[in-house]
Design a protein around this nucleic acid. Sequence first.
DNA 1: TGCTCATGGTATCGACAGTAACATTGCCAC
DNA 2: GTGGCAATGTTACTGTCGATACCATGAGCA
Lengths: 232, 232
Amino acid sequence: MSTRTVIIEAAAGLLAHSPSGDISTRAVCEAAGVQQPALYRLFGDKQGLLAATVDHVWDEYLGMKRSAVRSADPLEDLRSGWDSHTRFALTHPNAYRLLFGSGAVSQAESAAEAMRLLRDVLDRLAAQGRLRLEPEAAARVVMAANTGVALALILRPEQNPDEALSTTVRDLVHSGIVSDAAPVPDADEPERIAATTLRSALTTTAGELFTGREAGLLDEWLERIQTRPRPN
Amino acid sequence: MSTRTVIIEAAAGLLAHSPSGDISTRAVCEAAGVQQPALYRLFGDKQGLLAATVDHVWDEYLGMKRSAVRSADPLEDLRSGWDSHTRFALTHPNAYRLLFGSGAVSQAESAAEAMRLLRDVLDRLAAQGRLRLEPEAAARVVMAANTGVALALILRPEQNPDEALSTTVRDLVHSGIVSDAAPVPDADEPERIAATTLRSALTTTAGELFTGREAGLLDEWLERIQTRPRPN
DNA sequence: TGCTCATGGTATCGACAGTAACATTGCCAC
DNA sequence: GTGGCAATGTTACTGTCGATACCATGAGCA
């Protein structure tokens, strides 16, 4: 195994277990059994090391996906691509933040390749006449929304305990871009909407019609409607 | 002006002009005419200083907006809120990245307040029965998409030269969340869609029907249709 | 007059990114 | 072989950073 690979894998290991999301070149050198000048000869500077490391992690993860069979329906591939993106972010949060959150590794190849894979799927959709935007613009829309969701899941887990946010935004964006996707993605049924409407309205006007106890109970019942399991 | 304020404004000034997006506590102390122990007594550590600085910049910017009149239509407020968010990100990219890109300033008040303002508007929409999701979930969706767009504009300006991305995603997200928003936001007219379809399809099958010159010319004409100015 | 507590100042620590200068190895032409 | 060359390895260092220990001052108060 080349020195370069040893260093990269040491860096990837340290990065994966770094609470702060950052690593020091010294720690990498020690873990790889290499002196600092060797690292700087191979990667130029710290940013070069991080870019190579992120690309390595990305390749490793994408190894499973790259050979994934194209589905017959490009929309299905678009969905699974989104889910892969989100899962990568949650599996490798530090690498993901370096790539999409900070400008730390701007010249990494991973971001460009992610964009390329996305473009391919969108091109297939466009070739079928199902895309409502130019593929280039659509790719930027999908990529921006997906990175926003992934960073929210990484950086504010207390706000987003589960991954429902990802599927919600995914379907919402896709339905706005692909003409024959489910027209309104995750929309609630009328009852749920009505319950939401009433709960919001009652926060300001409940006092006129109900006692505190009544309002509390009513709110609880409405919440039960909101949170009941979805059909199908 | 209190020492605290002097330090914060010095930090804000340095941050605004920092190419790397980072500042050193030493430079802040020098610019503020203060010793390091003073800074650390006031803010605890660097993260505390950055959080206070980001909150200060945020407040300064929001001073113009806080007194903004509520529009009669909450959907209009939702749109202008999105645009404010995007504009803040582009006006203060370094502060924005600290707040939403890296986890550097997690306990800043600004993020929470942005969420609160968004929640208020969404609650008004819900009270009118126009929201298709619970306000809490809708707020997360809008916030994630908006930060994704803003970071894309900040970190990859070469991919996103203008702010069209922001308005596209904005209308797309809002139309998926608000029941009576324009159903399909920025969609292209049939001709443009058809041109997009053909251009994508022809990249793989042009060789069967056209010579290289013909294909090139055809592609150029189709592009002309795609890029023609939009009506109205 | 003694005491406490907030603030200011000096000097320093340990970790960090990056580098200069030198030593070593392997390899290829002759 | 042998001389030369390029790649690699090693030591030791620079300047900067975040953070802190320690001391000094001064105001308010019993």
